[in-house]
C-alpha cells in the first residue's frame, strides 16, 4: 500500500468512526419502549400484550357499571374501554396517558374492578376500562393512551392510541366497565 493511500484509508476510517458516533441511538431510542400505534377498534399486538381500544369518553364523575359506585375527582375523568390478553405468559396490565408532555398513570381507584388489577392470560381476553384523572385545563389536548405489561416497558412493546380530547365533550358522568374475562 502506497503512503498516500494509507493516509486516505486512515482518514476514511476516522470519518466512518465519527459517523458511527453521530448515528449512535439516543437513550430513548436505545432503551425506550417499542410503540405499536393503533386506531380505536384495531388490535395491537406487542411482545406479551395484545390489546384493542374501544370507546373513549370524559366526565366529571366516574360511575362503575356493576355496582353504581360513584367516584369524584378534582379534575376530569378520561375513561377508555380496552380488551387485552397476554401473548406468552401471565402478566399484569399498566396504563398511562401522556398529554402536553405530562404523564398520568391509570387510576387504581377501581381496585379489583379495574382491569389493571387482573392478571392477563394468553388466549383468554379480559375486558375493562382504564381511567385517568387529568387537570381540566388539559382536557382539550391530544392524549396518548398507552398499555403495557406489568414491569418496566423499557425495550418492551406498548400499545398506543392517540386521542384528540377536544373532540370529546365532558359529560356530567361517565361509566367504567367492571373488568372481567370475555369469550375468546
Amino acid at each position: 500500500m502506497t503512503r498516500p493511500l494509507a493516509w486516505l484509508a486512515a482518514a476514511g476510517i476516522l470519518v466512518a468512526a465519527g459517523a458511527v458516533v453521530l448515528l449512535e441511538p439516543g437513550e430513548q431510542l436505545a432503551q425506550g419502549p417499542i410503540v405499536v400505534a393503533v386506531d380505536p377498534g384495531e388490535e395491537g399486538a406487542g411482545r406479551n400484550v395484545v390489546a384493542t381500544f374501544g370507546d373513549v369518553r370524559m366526565g366529571e364523575v366516574l360511575e362503575l357499571d356493576s355496582t353504581g359506585a360513584m367516584y369524584t375527582t378534582e379534575g376530569v375523568w378520561v375513561a377508555v374501554d380496552v380488551v387485552a390478553e397476554s401473548v406468552v405468559s401471565p402478566t399484569g396490565l399498566q396504563s398511562t396517558l401522556e398529554i402536553d408532555g405530562k404523564e398520568y398513570l391509570g387510576s387504581e381507584r377501581l381496585d379489583t374492578d379495574g382491569i389493571e388489577s387482573w392478571t392477563l392470560a394468553a388466549g383468554l381476553p379480559t375486558a375493562g376500562t382504564v381511567v385517568f384523572e387529568i387537570p381540566p385545563e388539559l382536557a382539550g389536548g391530544t392524549a396518548h393512551v398507552r398499555l403495557a405489561g406489568s414491569g418496566t416497558p423499557r425495550l418492551d412493546s406498548v400499545i398506543e392510541l392517540t386521542v384528540d380530547l377536544s373532540s370529546l365533550e365532558v359529560a356530567p358522568s361517565v361509566t367504567a366497565l367492571a373488568a372481567g374475562r370475555v369469550d375468546p
Binding site: 401473548v87 405468559s89 394468553a122
Partner: peptide
C-alpha cells in the same frame, strides 16, 4: 412457548 397461571 405459552404459559398460564393457576385458574382464578
Amino acid at each position: 412457548e405459552r404459559r398460564w397461571a393457576e385458574a382464578t
